[in-house]
Simulated scan of single mutants.
Amino acid sequence: MTGELFGQDDPPQTARLALAEGALLLRGHAVASQDRLLAAIEQVALAAPFRNMVTPGGRAMSVAMTNCGCAGWVTDRRGYRYDPLDPETGRPWPEMPGCFADLATDAARDAGYPGFRPDACLINRYAPGARMGLHQDRDERDLAQPIVSVSLGLPAMFQFGGRRRNDPVAKYPLLHGDVLVWGGPSRLNHHGILTLRDGVHPKTGALRLNLTFRHAL
C-alpha cells in the first residue's frame, strides 16, 4: 500500500525542495486543483484513449499514454516526435483544458520561469509494475523552456540524474499533488520513475497519473 512506501498517505505538504540548479520540487502544489485535473483527464481520455506506445526498437512501453494540446508526443517504429494529429484517430489531439495550462504556468512561475505557457501535455498512466527508464526530454524545439510535471494518485520514486546517463542519480518520493519543474542548467538532465508498487489511492484507485507539460513547437 502507499503507506508502506512513504510512511503515510499524502501527508500535508508545503515544502519547496531544490533538486539541482534550475530544478525545484513543489510539494502539494496541485492538491487544491486535484478534482478539476482528474475530471479533465477523463474528458481527454474519452477523445484520445490511453494506449501503450511502441518504441523505435519495437518494445511496448509499460506506461500507457495520451496527449492534449497543439501537439502530442508519440513514439513508434519511425522514432520519437511531436505530432499535431493522434495517429490512432487521425484527428487533432484534444484541446488542453484551462485548468491544466493555468496550473503549469503558475508552477513554472513559482519555480522561477515566468511566462511559460505549455502547448503540449503528455499524460502518463502508471499501473503497478510500470516504470519509466532514465531519459532526457529533448524532442522540443525550444530547450530554453522548462518542463512541468504533476503527480496524481499512487506515490512513485523519481530518479533525477545529470546530463550524462552515467552521472550520479538521486531519488525523491513523489506524492499526490506534487509538482516538479526543471529547466535552465537542469533542462536536459536524465530522469525516470522506478517500478510502481502496488497500492490504492482514494482519488485514482490502483493508478498513478502524471501530467508532463512542455513548450514543444
Rank of each mutant, 00 (worst) to 15 (best):
G115T: 04
G115C: 04
F116Y: 10
F116V: 03
R117W: 08
P118A: 11
P118N: 02
P118Q: 04
D119S: 08
A120E: 11
I123E: 12
I123M: 15
N124I: 05
Y126E: 12
A127V: 10
A127N: 13
A127S: 10
P128I: 12
G129M: 12
G129L: 06
G129Y: 10
A130R: 07
R131K: 12
R131F: 05
M132L: 15
G133D: 14
G133V: 08
H135T: 06
R138Q: 11
D139H: 09
D139L: 02
D139K: 05
E140K: 01
E140V: 04
E140W: 01
R141L: 08
R141D: 07
R141H: 09
L143D: 09
A144N: 06
A144S: 15
Q145R: 09
Q145A: 06
P146H: 02
I147C: 04
I147L: 12
V148G: 03
V148N: 00
V150D: 10
V150E: 07
L152K: 10
G153F: 12
L154R: 08
P155Q: 15
A156C: 14
A156L: 06
M157E: 14
F158D: 00
F160H: 00
G161A: 05
G161W: 00
G162L: 01
G162T: 00
G162Q: 01
G162V: 01
G162F: 02
R163G: 01
